[in-house]
């Protein structure tokens, strides 16, 4: 059963990951200030291109963004059940085509992949045409903005960079903050 509703709750579970426990539990960096940008994702573009291109033009390569909602011609997403290979605790499943959908709310982190190319990590909730409300990990390059621009609030992260890097504890690649400056 996926959901239970009661006046008490279970003790939380502590999962055992495949790699060695890292005693550093919070990896964090800060900037003295941030730039805030209102970005409009333009119709017909992928969510990825609509975010990455305009922000790169104004020198933003690392950011935390909030997608304030809007119609998409298509949304593709996946969920994360337990990894059958047990190489990690969970693994993303196959892509799911939600079709034409309304994105209710989303958060997307902009950073770099291991080859320093732009990367967008996005989770969102959306309502499909059949009325069902779903959520998960959004495949941003396969999501196409609908007929109207979709508003995004961008908070730039200017004095450090986010980069996809291998995390030995979980045995997967994860976005992590690094001190190196972006020289692009």
């Amino acid at each position: 059963m996926t959901i239970t509703r009661s006046t008490s709750h279970s003790r939380r579970r502590t999962l055992v990951h495949p790699g060695k426990f890292n005693p550093v539990r919070i990896q964090s960096l800060y900037s003295d200030t941030a730039r805030h940008v209102r970005l409009a994702l333009m119709p017909g573009l992928s969510l990825f291109d609509g975010l990455v291109g305009p922000l790169a033009e104004i020198g933003i390569h690392n950011a935390s963004t909030t997608i304030l909602g809007g119609a998409f011609d298509s949304i593709h997403y996946c969920v994360a059940p337990p990894d059958p290979t047990r190489q990690a605790v969970i693994a993303y499943g196959d892509p799911i085509d939600a079709g034409r959908s309304y994105m209710i709310f989303g958060n997307a982190t902009l950073g770099r992949d291991a080859d320093r190319k732009p990367l967008v990590h996005c989770h969102a909730a959306f309502r499909r045409e059949d009325g069902r409300v779903k959520g998960g990990h959004i495949l941003t390059e396969r999501c196409i903005v609908g007929p109207e621009p979709v508003c995004v609030l961008v908070t730039s992260l200017d004095n450090f960079e986010l980069r996809l890097a291998f995390d030995p504890e979980t045995n997967i690649l994860l976005l992590q903050p690094f001190e190196e400056r972006d020289h692009d």
Partner: peptide, 29 residues
């Protein structure tokens, strides 16, 4: 801004009850 995943989620409901959502993983959207 925030996104990530939980082992299971425990949410407060309106009626002093708790909603427990079984994972893993429960994605924070």
């Amino acid at each position: 801004g925030a996104l990530g995943s939980l082992v299971d989620a425990c949410l407060g409901a309106n009626d002093d009850k708790f909603i427990e959502v079984k994972g893993p993983a429960v994605e924070i959207v």
